[in-house]
Design a protein around this nucleic acid. Sequence first.
DNA 1: CCCATTTATGCTCTTATTGAGCAATAACGC
DNA 2: GCGTTATTGCTCAATAAGAGCATAAATGGG
Lengths: 338, 338
Amino acid sequence: MGGELQLGLTVVIVAVAAGVPRVVEVRSGFEVPEALRGRDLPPPHRDALPGATFEPGRFRTLQEGVRAVAEGLTGVGLRYVEQLYTFGDRFRDPHELFGGPRALSVGYLALVRDEPIGGSGGAAWRDLYDHFPWEDWREERPALIDSVIVPALERWSAAAEDPGTRARRTERAQLAFALDGAPWDGERVLQRYELLYEAGLVVESHRDRRLEALAGVAGASAPRDMPRALGRPMARDGRRILATALERLRGKLKYRPIVFELLPPAFTLHRLQQVVEALSGTRLHKQNFRRLMISGGFVEPTGAFENQTGGRPAELYRFRRQAVHERTSTRAIPDAEA
Amino acid sequence: MGGELQLGLTVVIVAVAAGVPRVVEVRSGFEVPEALRGRDLPPPHRDALPGATFEPGRFRTLQEGVRAVAEGLTGVGLRYVEQLYTFGDRFRDPHELFGGPRALSVGYLALVRDEPIGGSGGAAWRDLYDHFPWEDWREERPALIDSVIVPALERWSAAAEDPGTRARRTERAQLAFALDGAPWDGERVLQRYELLYEAGLVVESHRDRRLEALAGVAGASAPRDMPRALGRPMARDGRRILATALERLRGKLKYRPIVFELLPPAFTLHRLQQVVEALSGTRLHKQNFRRLMISGGFVEPTGAFENQTGGRPAELYRFRRQAVHERTSTRAIPDAEA
DNA sequence: CCCATTTATGCTCTTATTGAGCAATAACGC
DNA sequence: GCGTTATTGCTCAATAAGAGCATAAATGGG
């Protein structure tokens, strides 16, 4: 009852450039299996997260493997690395459908400073919110929530035969997208992605169902309707891993001073706030943000000033590493504005 | 450069019985390798966490595998399952030292109600704090911290030749055990265990170094001194996984209503508080705890009463599942008493 | 039956945190 | 000089949270 097993490492490498949260991506190496050439295959998605098969003999720890993969690919030094989750659902890699080994992957989150990618592997930065347009609330409530998501989720709920299922779907939709008047919870990134996946609102869901049908998985049938697909898709379960990373990042931001790993040694408080906002996807109250950073002991002034601000020059601050210890209050960033 | 790879699942199954937090353990199946019979091997530790090799063909998800392992072994239904971490450090399984495959394991946390174990696999409950006596602050600051840990950590710091290392060790010790007057942080369970491991205060650290020396790992030498060992050891990296589980559990307790998975459908507020205290390892202010539970909407009265309390009868409450949604305030339990 | 004991429950008081906004400061370009 | 832009300082109110006092409702011993 064994079957083959393959363990991969996948890294979500995040930086923030001028208010844009970005992720390192590579071209997907997916190849259409021999037996299916010419058939009605879904087009392979080209964006993929960088990763590699874990070589047991080569690294003492998984994290060493991650660093080697990521730094080799991008030439950028990882300033923070954290294990996210191990993704092991069957068929997460389409090759499994055609006799390939069961492919598990350990996902990692890595933070880097905003630097150009030096590697030669065809890696490039991309705006994180290209994949999750509904997650960026900095300007305003994203329009596609009301114009596309809500109606589609309502149709999806209504489509369930069983009233119990119907109620559960409605409730999940309300919870994930704060439709019941509750405030938006920026952290539920994965919950939202999975809901959209199940409701058939992201292309991957159709791709996977079609592949399963082609591979002859019991009970699988190619979906007929193809509603408007949301966000830029990724190969395999890349977007699920990315959603996990964003969720973790948003959560951690709140009580651990990890933003600073994304910034140069000296920065203005405005720049710092911009980075936080880019990742949390919300706007913050400027004065309160400053108060928390300073009185919380996270930063200290350098004495130097930045005068390209367009207004009054802003003082440059540096991160106080000791702040990690003092930890008087737990919070590391304030709540979003109402 | 491949080498073999083996993926295991390991489960930390937690319940609370009458104020005692307990974990399911099995007898370790470690066997002394042929080549080393009769040599000066460290005695194998008998307590082990339940687990099994993951069979790729058999389960659709890792979590299904975990449920099968855990419920098959104990006969107890898992009420909550969460992936913890994937442990992949080289030599976490001693067999690797003697030519065995690289053994990774995906660790899971599972919560169950306090029930007798029905399985036939030799599984049994054990007090969690047998393994971490320094983590239980319910009665008072554990005496062994001042009598054993602090002096030993001071010796360990002083033993470093390099002044930088010395300073770093001192700082880590202060941070982990709150020696600088900072309040005890119950969540740093893993940090503390790893510190004690590095400082040679838990037997596993000596065991591992002896094994590595026997297996001829470069740079490894059997330790000479054997200071007082703290807490009950476990096979392999069981205690590291257990520490990870306790840390996660303590953290999650604070902002997610998962305590209720450990309780019967109806319970007194006192019982609820006991369970939280057992896991957090601290005492809570009774009135404030009640206030938070009730005003936070986590519980509602059933109307029935419990009169075996020894004093005034206590009302029985039940968990309000909807509380998960309302989530007005984030907190799910108050801070510890000062 | 009264009373000490025990545990549950209700309520107040004080302080710290935090959301929100007003106002002043210090640069720039015309 | 003056409008513009952005930084910085400060106040105020609402809320959450820590701590303790007081009362209620059971038990058991004299």
